[in-house]
Design a protein around this nucleic acid. Structure first.
Lengths: 155, 155
DNA sequence: TATTTACCCAGTAAATCACTTGGTAATTAG
DNA sequence: CTAATTACCAAGTGATTTACTGGGTAAATA
């Protein structure tokens, strides 16, 4: 698993798309404006996302991008793997020169940990994040006029 | 959170240290040999780990590295943060130009997800991984002479 | 004293990041 | 039909990171 800033850009952009794409497609120009990501870099990211059919583009005026499938069917792991190209870390592949002996022990341990992290991210969907955001909004609305705690998030 | 190959090298090396350091220090040369990581690169990584007091070096013949504290007190997040330098992703910091409006929504969403991933890795210790490995060894010993399933992990 | 280790620093080819520039193709509005 | 708007595509680029080589010095042991 690889989780770099590139993957973060992709996740952030997809979140933007999920939140703003309820009624009609969202242009890359909008996402670029919203998230402060350069248009061409977004194009690169969305080319990868399109290849994995996580988004669907519509050309012409009024065009833009839709999610390729339901937000509940797109996991964070899906997004990151689309743009970040899963790299196999251990060169031994499990059964090469270092298999059997104590040599490869940490390799398999890392592989276990790695797939655990992957499963963790695979179990969080875009839909989850959107719903989480809606809940937060409800919380804020039900406890309005409480603006003083803007500083209490530094911890 | 940033999870690159560099962090993986560090985690793998620390795992090696935790497994082989039961009786006496482990030299970087051994870890280099075991894990196929160049000696000088290990030195760089261990300089960072030493700064965070995750390892303790002993010079001279018979020297090497000890864990800086109990394996149970070293989390995977500790290790990765030591070598990979936590980078704040959202430039807005939560209350800059894009605060309030819908603009920063995905930023805070990402921050939530990010800290969730961090907590996940913070709750896995080196000790956990070592014990996981011991359990696996016991399993293998209790079900010996079953070697045929070496291919069944391709999926 | 010689060896072994950690420790330190400068440099480097290759890759990656995030971006710019300059297009072409499809679709819609006028 | 024309012009505008969007996705789509490709080449290049400075800055940074990666993983490494090579050159040391400092401390500890045999």
């Amino acid at each position: 698993m690889r989780l770099s800033t590139k993957g973060r850009y992709a996740v952030t952009a997809m979140l933007d798309l999920a939140l703003n794409g309820k009624n009609g497609p969202v242009t890359l120009a909008e996402i670029s404006e919203n998230q402060g990501i350069s248009l061409s870099y977004l194009e690169q990211l969305f080319a990868a996302l399109r290849n994995k059919e996580l988004v669907r583009g519509v050309r012409g005026p009024g065009g833009g991008y839709y999610l390729g499938k339901s937000a509940d069917d797109i996991s964070i792991a899906n997004i990151i793997c689309a743009v970040d190209e899963w790299v196999e870390f251990t060169r031994c592949g499990g059964r090469q020169n270092c298999s059997g002996g104590a040599r490869c022990l940490t390799h398999t341990l890392w592989d276990d940990l790695s797939s655990e992290i992957f499963n963790f991210l695979a179990n969080i969907s875009l839909g989850d994040l959107v719903r989480r955001n809606l809940n937060k909004k409800e919380d804020e609305e039900s406890s309005l006029s409480v603006v003083a705690n803007a500083d209490s998030q530094a911890a």
